[in-house]
């Protein structure tokens, strides 16, 4: 289990963006973190993974404080611009002991990517696929995805959504933020709602549908349009 306890973060002297964020990610589930623009979803993910230092709070991953079981898929390119996809794969293989070359090759084939393509010449959709690949090919039980569907076309979205119905999901606890809730609602196991720097609501999606007849979007309207 990936436990997040009391994350707090303030930028400058304004109101804190995160004011005690706590939740858990269970293995073998797909959880979606929902919040309006600028609410701090991205900050939470980056805080968990160490890219933004938090003012307070802690992360416990399967009983340890080590982050090495968490993989991160950012919404920006992170490889130097001169690199080809092949270079990026070699890079990951060199630096990470839990890099799975086979998974990487499989995903390259599935996503129809060429290792000779330069990353910064790829379309936004293909760049998103590369980022996804770099995350999923690490044999880590927890995966964080920051807006994996942002600004990409419908067909690429479908390709990326496919991965959530594939065997690559097995054994992983995944936390995702997205605004494209419509297209992936049916894939999500859990939703957590962020507002005013705190988690104010959590649901098992199937329970919500079965017991209350509500979709995630319905609940979103209830939560944010008060």
């Amino acid at each position: 289990m990936l436990e997040v306890h009391g994350l707090k973060k303030r930028f400058g002297r304004k109101r804190p963006v995160l004011n005690g964020v706590s939740f858990s990610i269970k293995p073998d589930t797909l959880t979606c973190l929902i919040g309006l623009n600028g609410e701090g979803k991205s900050t939470i993910l980056k805080g968990i993974v160490g890219l933004i230092p938090m003012d307070a709070g802690s992360i416990i991953v399967d009983g340890t404080t080590s982050r090495e079981k968490i993989a991160f898929v950012p919404d920006v390119q992170t490889m130097p611009s001169y690199m080809t996809i092949g270079d990026a794969l070699t890079y990951m293989n060199d630096y990470y002991s839990d890099w799975n070359e086979q998974t990487a090759d499989e995903l390259m084939a599935t996503f129809k990517l060429l290792s000779t393509d330069k990353i910064n010449e790829l379309s936004k959709g293909n760049q998103a696929k590369v980022n996804l690949l770099l995350g999923f090919a690490l044999d880590r039980p927890y995966l964080l995805l920051d807006e994996p569907f942002a600004g990409i076309d419908l067909f690429t979205k479908e390709q990326i959504a496919w991965i959530f119905s594939s065997h690559y999901m097995e054994g992983r606890g995944i936390l995702m933020t997205t605004h494209e809730i419509v297209e992936v609602e049916h894939l999500i196991d859990r939703v957590i709602f962020l507002q005013d720097g705190q988690i104010i609501d959590e649901h098992d999606t199937e329970e919500m549908r079965e017991i209350h007849g509500k979709s995630v979007q319905d609940r979103m309207r209830e939560v944010y349009q008060r």
Binding site: L51, F72, V76, T78, Y95
Partner: peptide, 14 residues
């Protein structure tokens, strides 16, 4: 600077 933020990758490295 630029489109790709290599700093992310550097800070994420084990």
């Amino acid at each position: 600077i630029g489109e790709s933020k290599h700093i992310y990758r550097l800070l994420l490295l084990p």
